[in-house]
Design a binder for these strands. Structure first.
Lengths: 289, 289
DNA sequence: GCAGGCTATAGGTAAAAACTAGAGCACCCA
DNA sequence: TGGGTGCTCTAGTTTTTACCTATAGCCTGC
């Protein structure tokens, strides 16, 4: 019987549903199911009656709930007690220009929420920052890199563009298309190499620096472009199609200089929150550059 | 940060030593070391200063201690709360006649200590019992068997016997020796088979039923005998020697009928306490007969 | 300066917890 | 009444964590 079980129990009790509790805890539903069974076995009492539209707490469950809450809260209090003692921490962070913001802003929000006393200042990517959101291909040798998620590159095109009729497209269909080029881009070299090898060309209509601007131009009908999926998701004014014959991807993560040391829990907090935002398959293992 | 870490922390705090804490928790010293480091990292504070003759708590450590104790106690209270609700439980247990008692009495003591409301009644091995301490070779097909430890068979001989000069002996040296035979014995058949195959005989001076009686006769100088190590350990009036050319062993454990069901935590409590008593190597995995 | 404590690190193994896929059940709605 | 939906449970697999052994390194006392 550990606190993990109690956390799950609390979620189930409040949601009146294993599936909902699983979502709330960012884990799969069978994990909740087995953990809860173990808890029931350990306490030798059924905590919920299962029916087809959720679960209802038994008397034992109702009895356990306040105690479970108290346990979990007290454990959090202990943690806070020591972290509050710690001197307020100010970190500078930077964002690589080719990264767009929705997911990263969620990460930053989590950091501020979960690390009391933390102050962040955003600096330009050209300046040196304590923590840098960037891609693995842009890390230096004396960096430590913590991967956060993987982005697949997809083709972005205006609504109604002829290529949108295909569910996924071949790189050969890109030949001679009007194109919005973006630089710096971590896969630009591989892209050029592949195009050249296949004897393909694009008709470059614009050269831009940021993903947002590229997407705006695509939406305006200037041409198509190659964009990491997470950056383009959620825009209704463009259409995204995957490439079916080549897989281009980048690994987005957090880098800092090896010599710069923070309290370890800062990094841990960020890594812990990974599967909150990114599906399991795109949240990948750590690696030191 | 889980309760396990806090338990270890408490042990270290009270023992003022990682090694001593490890012994008290029945785990290896490096496990304490790493777990404690993780806790320190998580709370972002050193809890102990290490020096060459143990550790001394820092202010943070001293501050944490009472909270840690409270957490652990409250968790135990929750467990007890539900277990006390449960109806008092009475189980009959039996002991196979060829098992001697020191280790088993420890197991029984643990059961009574850790399961409030449990009453045990010892019945004769011939009667049917809820739980039976026995060997794996004596389980029936409709039994569930939980292994507790392995016993190596060793040769027991009187103090000063000529074979005692060897640190370990060969089965060939047993040939024509005065022997105290014991039956029932779970490896009797294998033993006879091996002896016969090698053309060896023993000079049987006595036929007895229990291990204790066999050891008494050996101590009295009547002959040598073959005894599971755990049963013979701790007697100063006999000498034990391992066999170097054959390995005879038995698996001692707890059996019950498949259809007879108990609260799962009864079995769990017993299995949890395994490495309290038996070294890691002899405490082995569960198996269903 | 060497023996005997102690803790820390490295590398491998076993156990626990997580995931995916799919079965089975009750309910709802056509 | 049959099919779809949403729920939980089971089985089998993979990943992660905890633990072990062996050994290095560091002080202390002899």
């Amino acid at each position: 019987m550990d606190v993990r079980s109690l956390r799950y129990f609390i979620a189930v009790f409040e949601e009146r549903s294993l599936s909902a509790a699983a979502k709330r805890c960012f884990i799969a539903q069978p994990s909740i199911s087995t953990t809860l069974s173990q808890l029931e076995e350990d306490l030798d009492t059924k905590l919920f009656v299962r029916h087809s539209k959720g679960v209802a707490p038994t008397d034992s469950g109702t009895q356990l709930y306040p105690h479970a809450c108290r346990m979990v809260n007290e454990l959090n209090d202990i943690k806070d007690m020591f972290r509050k003692n710690a001197k307020p921490l100010t970190l500078s962070i930077s964002l690589a220009p080719f990264l767009s913001g929705t997911l990263i802003s969620q990460v930053i929000k989590t950091m501020l929420d979960e690390i009391p006393g933390l102050t962040l200042s955003l600096v330009d990517a050209s300046e040196s920052a304590d923590l840098r959101f960037t891609c693995d291909s842009y890390t230096k040798n004396d960096d430590v890199f913590y991967p956060l998620w993987e982005d697949d590159y997809v083709v972005a095109m205006p609504v109604g563009y002829w290529l949108a009729d295909y569910t996924s497209i071949s790189i050969k269909q890109i030949d001679k298309q009007p194109f919005v080029s973006r630089t710096p881009c971590d896969i630009l070299e591989s892209w050029n190499f592949i195009m050249q090898k296949q004897g393909l060309t694009t008709d470059v209509r614009a050269q831009v620096k940021t993903e947002e601007y590229a997407l705006d131009l695509v939406a305006a009908g200037l041409g198509i472009s190659l964009i990491p999926e997470h950056s383009a998701r959620g825009r209704g004014d463009i259409v995204l199609r995957t490439l079916n014959d080549i897989a281009l991807k980048r690994v987005v993560g957090l880098a800092h200089n090896k010599d710069r040391s923070f309290p370890a829990y800062v990094i841990n907090t960020i890594l812990m929150s990974k599967n909150k935002f990114f599906g399991k398959k795109s949240a990948i293992k750590s690696r030191v550059a």
